[in-house]
Design a protein around this nucleic acid. Structure first.
Length: 562
RNA sequence: GGGCCGUUAGCUCAGCAGGUAGAGCAUCUGGCUUUUAACCAGAGGGUCGCUGGUUCGAGCCCAGCACGGCUCACCA
């Protein structure tokens, strides 16, 4: 076997240099330290390759002390140095495990002590050390693959000199491999009776407290890796999130939808009411916006003849952060031709119900000390009905009052809700709804009949054009979904955009921008279509019992450190 | 952006009327061949977020700043 590489002379030079490192570091490698390792390789070429590898894995860097090192890091670097001296690679490239900790635990948890003894099953398994219990010449190591935990039992006289020496240099958090026979201890715990230990990687930074874990929220979000190592339930949340996303895709795939990807960077930030992130494309010398919604692109695809499309991806909104808002969040949007909003409403019920059952196993879940029932059918109110239902006074407004601008102003004043005097009737009704009804919508509730002024992309109701054929779903007082029959009349769409532009001119930064190409697309003829967006982060929050959106986003945005 | 709260050992947290800092885990030394938050004996470890002020003396009181959490407003 030959290893031909024109760079070998360079490696050679590095290697020579490497072997003559001045005594600058307190952990300067001894001159002949690597010779035994190199000697085990027969060919010169492999030797050089290996030499490069050793050099590249930063033996010096990893064990060099810095002024920031505390006593624990110093100790761990020393241990790594000694592990190398024993002949182990400090950061080997792979480990040929026969299975994972989780698979071993899952497949053997039911087996009795006697069964295991007769099977004498040999396994080779890798994991991270979570606990070490040493008793003189024997010891237990608990290690984990992130999922399950497994115990290794070692005896100094059985495991071999080299493995035992390695064991004495191991620290909590290190990654190791163990080979041995599965058995059950006196106390009945499934364990590997170790024949051999392997060293796979060093944890130079100690892991969080093995019992109390990592609580500091700032550190949990900034160093999610440490959070995931320490807190098993955090890991579970993101596994469930993946399950929710997977099943959502399956739900739409099974219904004849195709998944599409539309621009994340676009010359117009439109399709929703929000302030965008702004960036610049150098080659084209144009301003681009991170998308606030894919809506208008998806409907162009409906025009183009894909009758069912969905996109499950990120939206970006340059707005405040809160327990419910992250600057980037995951939105599912889907569009279905020849359907109206009532069909999507039913579908939403079906989708969320099935997600709830598959991720939690039940129709009823606990969230924020409330029991939320996803048993169908869910409550439905028009926006005005909801306002009336939750009106705080004995004397309630009439349906007609709730769409009349003068009466709405009086009503808002009556219950001292502050409003912008320039607000139109639809905006005022929306304001009353948010203030009075939203805080009560704990159980899944559909709100329908949205004012046209609040719905620039929705089709007007045939029975009353002041309202649109639109709904929103609320769960746990959060807006989860927003769906409507899509406005497909290009003339009416232009009028709505112009209405929005007027709001913009009056200083409403979040009002929508006109999209001429979208109107052109509509002019080719868009079939009657219903479309919807569902906030995946919020669905995940509810189904995993998390109060903060930061707990369902792996790397939530924070101010940079220092 | 406003209000409230927080920041102490590697991790989790105590600390008081203002008198130079404590515990558990982790680390180090010794003991222990089926333990499991292993145990027993001993040891080391701190710029008490930063900067200034008050004071004989500040982790503690005051001011400013930084970072974070919660909350209100805008938003999904």
């Amino acid at each position: 076997m030959t290893f031909k590489n024109p760079l070998i002379p360079a490696f050679f030079y590095k290697f020579i240099h490497f072997c003559h490192i001045p005594a600058a570091s307190p952990f300067r490698p001894k001159g002949s330290l690597y010779q035994p390792i190199l000697d085990t390789f027969q060919t010169e070429s492999i030797k050089w390759f290996f030499c490069f590898n050793l050099f590249n894995v930063d033996i010096l860097g990893a064990t060099q002390l810095t002024e920031h090192d505390n006593d624990q890091i110093v100790q761990r670097k020393k241990n790594l140095q000694e592990i190398q001296a024993l002949g182990y690679l400090p950061y080997p490239a792979s480990y040929k495990a026969t299975e994972t900790v989780t698979s071993v635990v899952k497949s053997h948890s039911e087996k009795s002590k006697e069964e295991l003894e007769s099977e004498k099953k040999e396994v080779k398994v890798a994991g991270r050390i979570r606990a070490i219990r040493k008793m003189g010449k024997a010891a237990f190591i608990t290690y984990s693959d992130g999922g399950e935990q497994l115990q290794i039992y070692l005896r100094s006289n059985e495991v071999g000199e080299k493995s035992w020496q390695l064991f004495n240099l191991l620290d909590l958090g290190d990654l190791i491999g163990a080979k041995g026979i599965l058995f059950r201890t006196k106390t009945g715990e499934l364990s590997i009776h170790a024949e051999e230990l392997d060293f796979l990687a060093k944890a130079l930074t100690p892991p969080p407290d093995k019992y109390y874990g990592l609580h500091d929220k700032e550190m949990r979000y900034r160093q999610r890796y440490a959070d995931l190592i320490a807190n098993h339930d955090v890991r579970e949340v993101f596994i469930k999130r993946a399950q929710i996303v997977r099943e959502t895709r399956k739900f739409f795939d099974e219904r004849g939808y195709i998944e599409v990807e539309t621009p994340m960077l676009s010359p117009l930030a439109t399709g929703a009411a929000a302030r965008p992130f702004v960036t610049h494309h150098n080659a084209l010398d144009i301003t681009l916006y991170a998308r606030i919604a894919p809506e208008l692109y998806l409907k162009r695809l409906i025009v183009g003849g894909y009758e069912r499309v969905y996109e499950l991806n990120r939206n970006f909104r340059n707005e405040g952060l809160s327990i419910k808002h992250n600057p980037e969040f995951t939105m599912l949007e889907f569009y279905q031709a020849y359907s109206d909003y009532t069909e999507l409403l039913e579908m939403t019920e079906e989708l969320i119900h099935s997600l709830a059952v598959s991720t939690t196993g039940k129709e009823e879940i606990e969230y924020e000390e409330q029991v939320i029932s996803f048993a169908r059918p869910w409550t439905r109110f028009t926006m005005r009905e909801a306002v009336i239902k939750y009106w705080p006074q004995e004397e309630k407004p009439t349906l007609e009052a709730l769409i009349d601008i003068d009466q709405l102003r009086q009503l808002a004043e009556l219950i001292s809700i502050k409003f912008d005097p320039k607000s139109n009737a639809g905006q005022l009704l929306g304001l009353l709804f948010e203030n009075l009804a939203e805080p009560h919508l704990i159980q899944p509730t559909f709100i329908t009949e949205f004012p046209t002024e609040l719905s620039p992309l929705s089709k007007q109701s045939l029975v009353d054009p002041r309202f649109t054929d639109r709904f929103e779903l609320f769960v746990a007082c959060m807006e989860i979904a927003n769906g409507f029959s899509e406005l497909n009349d290009p003339a009416e769409q232009r009028a709505r955009f112009e209405q929005q532009m007027k709001l913009r001119e009056r200083g409403d930064e979040e009002a929508m921008v006109i999209d001429e190409d979208y109107i052109r697309a509509l002019s080719y003829g868009m079939p009657p279509t219903a479309g919807e967006g569902i906030g995946i982060d919020r669905v995940t929050m509810i189904l995993t019992g998390q109060r903060s959106i930061r707990d369902v986003i792996l790397f939530p945005h924070m101010r940079p450190e220092k």
